[in-house]
Each structure stands twice: as structure tokens, then as C-alpha cells.
Amino acid sequence: MLKPEGIVRRKMVLFFIVDTSGSMWGTKIQAVNQAVCEVLPELQKMSDGNADALLQVAVLGFDNAAYWLTAEPQNVDAFFWKDLEANGGTNLGDALFKLNEKLSKDGFMGHASGAFAPALFLMSDGCPNDDSYKKELEKLRNNNWFKKAIKVACAIGDDAGCSVLEEFTGTPETILTVHTPEALKKVIRFVSVTSSQIGSQSAHVGNRQIDAVESKQDSMIGALQASSDQFTDDSDADEW
């Protein structure tokens, strides 16, 4: 029997957008590094056994300026996470600018057999110290890939600018606040796995109207609500 090629899969890119400013130095950035490394084998397994989607990862760090750690999205089975280091400011505006650039068919989203809307996962522990982020966010909001994307943010510690993160996700329901490295690791694992799963998960019959569709972002909100007890971070104060 002639061997078949793999079934045609659309790609699904999971973007890690990580604040690497000086305030992330130490346990915060180490927790991020460790958690992503730990979840990668899970994502690889998911991609191998997934006939719907080919999972890819892209990583954008930002401090004084934003920088791609992946020149293009990488298949999870070939991806190696290079530990991030933290120093400098929090130039979110440049990160949004660079994200907007790549959220296009000619950027990171081109694929012969098409792509699912991406998952964008922003992690930050502070407020942007640049003036440009509002302007760049405005531009990003007009990007069709961004509009359809799953958008989740993790606020690391008390000083994280939740209102800024909410401007990014468009809803407070996909913002998770963490106060400890353990909680951060849990959130990274959950968001990475769940946002990657959403595209191919069985859906339940709701009280929807005929021909109405649930957005991927709504599905993500549902998944976060259903598992909210896993992320209840009861810590009174930051422990970093």
C-alpha cells in the first residue's frame, strides 16, 4: 500500500508575548522559562495526535524595545525555548507594533492550507512606560487576525497594569492575576494547552439561535470560567 501524506492541517500559532523588563528579573522570568519548557512536551503530544491543526509557537519579548525570538513560527515538535532574560523598560507599544506587523498572511500567518485564528498570550508585571502603546493598540484592533484571535493576559503581581491588559484582551474575563511563581506556572500551562485545544474541541448545544456561532474568544472565556478554581490565587501579597 502506498504511504499517504499527512492529512492537510491548518496551522494554529500560539504567541507568547512576554514582558522582559527589569522588574521581571529573578523568580518571575525564571518561572516563565520553566513553565513554558514544561508545557512544551504536552503541546508536542497534542500536535502529534491532532488531525485538525498543526501547532506552532512564536515568541515576542519586550523591554526597552520588542524583539522576536522566533524568526518565524516554529512547529512545536522542533521548537526549543531559549531562556529569556530580564532588564530594561516596558515598551509595550513596540511589542504591539511588531505583533501587528506579523499578524498578516505575508507575516507569520501565511500557510498553504490556511490557518486558524491565533492565540495571543500576553504576560506582564507592570505598566508600559512608553507613550505609543495606545496608538499601536488602536492599529492592532483593526487587524482582522487580532479581532478573531483568542486573547488572554496574565497579570504578574500587584503592580501589573490590569487596565492595560484589559485593553489588549478586550475583556476582563481573560485576565488572570497571579501572585506566586507556582500560580504563574499553572496559568501558563493551562492557557497554552487550552487555547491550543479550543480550535478542535467538541462543542455543547446551548440555547443558541440557528446559524449563530460562538467565537473562539467566548469558548476560551467559558473554559477559564469552568476551571476558575484551579487559578484562585489566595495569596494576600506577592511572593516573588
Binding site: P4, E5, G6, I7, V8, R10, A51, K105, M109, G110, H111, A112, S113, G114, A115, F116, A117, N144, W145, K148, V213, E214, S215, K216
Partner: peptide
């Protein structure tokens, strides 16, 4: 899928759309 290792409804119409949105599905 078992016989053709392909999806019966996924051809030209799907790949001409770069993003498989919920509306498109």
C-alpha cells in the same frame, strides 16, 4: 478520511481563505 486521508469538504474553497474563522466554518 479513512480511505482518502483527506476531509471530504475541504478543497479549494477553504484554502483560498487564509483564516478559518467561526463564520467560515
Amino acid at each position: 478520511e479513512l480511505m482518502f486521508f483527506s476531509h471530504p469538504l475541504e478543497g479549494e474553497r477553504l484554502v483560498k481563505h487564509p483564516c478559518l474563522t467561526e463564520d467560515l466554518e
